[in-house]
């Protein structure tokens, strides 16, 4: 019993420390004091300021657009890649897997630097000294981070699949494309979905690759693309987290919390269903 109390207090202590900075911002998002740590009076002033702040809204828009596009592109390329490689000979499979592992183990800053150097070189030598940096280079950077993980998420689902299924569909008269999206895709859908989610979050959270490979474009127009990460970094380099950002933190936290709650309810429901089925089985015996 003492052991249990000790264990629980350790777990909750670490959890509390982990959440403290974020909770701190959240608590002080409900006051209109500009200095953090000062409490004036309870208000939603910061929330209306947040939505009126053009800079933050632009960055938020950029971040979401970029995350959606890069998640979509990475998922398509990664999934098709995984399917194609799955049906290849062993040698090619091994080689591709080795290549795919490079960005996974590589440091983010090395990926960013290598892409930047390449774009600089191409811009200087093949595009008449023009800068290549734009939304497209940024998109390539984010896809570089995400595609290997999509591949790694889809691959195990393909291995679980019955390899004869595709042939069976073909024998029964399906065209290759039809067999692909009626037979294979449904089988590996969970893997595709988790790959999509992972690439979305990777893009949302990324700072280094964005800072290196961005150029003008998207909602920022002629200026450099600002995403949430680069905007926050620029702000906290000069001083405290801007007050409007506290309101934003609360909103992000609530969204993430909602996802976690829904997920855990689903997991528990599955567990209960399984438990009930077991009971029925035992009862029928």
């Amino acid at each position: 019993m003492v052991k249990k109390i000790f264990a629980y207090s350790y777990v909750y202590l670490i959890l509390a420390i982990l959440y403290l900075p974020v909770l701190y911002l959240i608590v002080f998002s409900f006051t209109d004091a500009t200095f953090l740590g000062q409490w004036q009076n309870f208000s939603f002033e910061l929330y209306s300021q947040l939505f009126a702040n053009k800079e933050i809204m632009t960055a938020l828009g950029n971040t979401l657009i970029l995350a959606c596009i890069s998640a979509f592109v990475s998922t398509v390329i990664g999934t098709l890649g995984a399917i194609g490689v799955y049906y290849c000979k062993k040698g090619i499979k091994r080689l591709t897997e080795g290549l795919n592992q490079i960005p996974v183990v590589n440091a983010e800053i090395v990926i960013a630097m290598s892409l930047t150097v390449m774009f600089v070189f191409l811009g200087q030598n093949f595009f008449g000294n023009n800068s290549l940096f734009s939304f497209w280079t940024l998109l390539i950077g984010h896809c570089c981070l995400a595609i290997p993980f999509v591949y790694l998420n889809v691959k195990p689902k393909l291995q679980q699949m019955d390899p004869a299924l595709y042939e069976a569909a073909m024998d029964l008269g399906a065209s290759p494309t039809k067999a692909l999206h009626k037979v294979i895709i449904p089988q590996i859908l969970p893997g595709i979905f988790s790959g999509l989610l992972l690439s979305f979050t990777l893009s949302l959270d990324d700072f280094i690759v964005t800072a290196f490979t961005r150029g003008p474009g998207l909602l920022s127009g002629q200026a450099q693309i600002e995403t949430l990460s680069t905007l926050v970094q620029a702000k906290i380099k000069k001083g405290a987290v801007p007050p409007e950002m506290r309101a934003l933190t609360t909103i992000i936290f609530l969204i993430v919390l909602a996802i976690v709650v829904i997920y855990s309810i689903r997991v528990n429901m599955k567990k209960n269903n399984r438990g009930r089925r077991k009971e029925l089985k035992n009862a029928s015996r």
Partner: peptide, 10 residues
């Protein structure tokens, strides 16, 4: 899942 630059600033 909360932006890590924001967390660092906080």
């Amino acid at each position: 899942w909360i932006n890590f630059v924001l967390r660092t600033g906080a």
